[in-house]
Amino acid sequence: MILRRLGGAVAVLLIVVALNFFLFRVMPGDPLSGMMDPKLSAEAKEKIRGMWGLDKPLSEQFFIYVGQMATFNFGMSMTTQRPVWDELKGRVPNTVALLLPALLLSAMLGIYLGVKAAVARGSLTEKLVIWSGAVSFSVPSFFVQIVLLMCFAYTVPIFPLRGSSSIPPPTGFAAILDYLWHLSLPLISLVALSFGGWALYIRNMMVKTLGEDYILMAVARGLPRARVVWNHAFRSILPPVLTMLLLSLPGVVSGAVLTETVFSLNGAGSLLLEAVNSHNYPVAQAAFYIMALLTVLCNLLADLLCALVDPRVRLGGEQA
């Protein structure tokens, strides 16, 4: 059964790889227009096309591309002429260092508040969670981040205005502290903007679950309240929560363009946007391929974990 899932994942990945190649080719615009003066001779233009392998037939380009994806040899960036791996290595760690804690913290906070709100139905706690969750979920991120920057990096300058390090950067352990200090405000802003969605989602699922007969039975049996809430009710909603969490993981690599812009962070989001806008095929293809790969892997992992946490779920799809 695991093999069947793996086969399905590989098929999805192959389709994405093919789309990744052809969609960029049918997009309007020429990837070389930025680097090729129209006044160049036809011979010089052809030479430049040849440098990037764009003079070859499309089928040949496709097989070269598939080989590159399979071996993780992504070639050179068209705009910087540096290896694509170097471009990604310079950006992805910053993005992961910010977005992974942001995802985990916002999920944890959202789950905790969502459960609390569901348990205390009709109370002030529930109203506060719903209200704050709705605000967090709906306000524009750009606006919130600029306001936070203005309040806590400008008016009361307790956080830095920009970047991921001071200028000049400190050395040794102080450099780590400095890095964490620089990521603090973006992290706070992302958690503030993301916990709401989690809180509202968890609350809604928990409200439904807490009304189920088996929960009422557990309460009637005199089990401690916390055990009923967390061990029985919450556990039963764990599979969709895990799936949601794992499927959010690829987004940790793709970055957050607006956050990177407001806080002047050097992340993968702006690289990807720039690569798509400038038809930088090698970078855009590599980035989308990695995201697709992560999505497929996280999906597989979610299936496995769901089977682990919920005995009713079997990988074969049978219900106990």
């Binding site: 203005m150 300058p157 205005l161 920009r162 970047g163 812009t261 407001v262 002047s264």
Partner: peptide
């Protein structure tokens, strides 16, 4: 001389008025 990368126009304005 440091060429400091700062993209957002609001952040740039705050940075120059705060001496960064």
């Amino acid at each position: 001389l440091y060429y400091v990368v700062m993209r957002d126009a609001d952040a740039q304005t705050m940075a120059i008025t705060s001496g960064k």
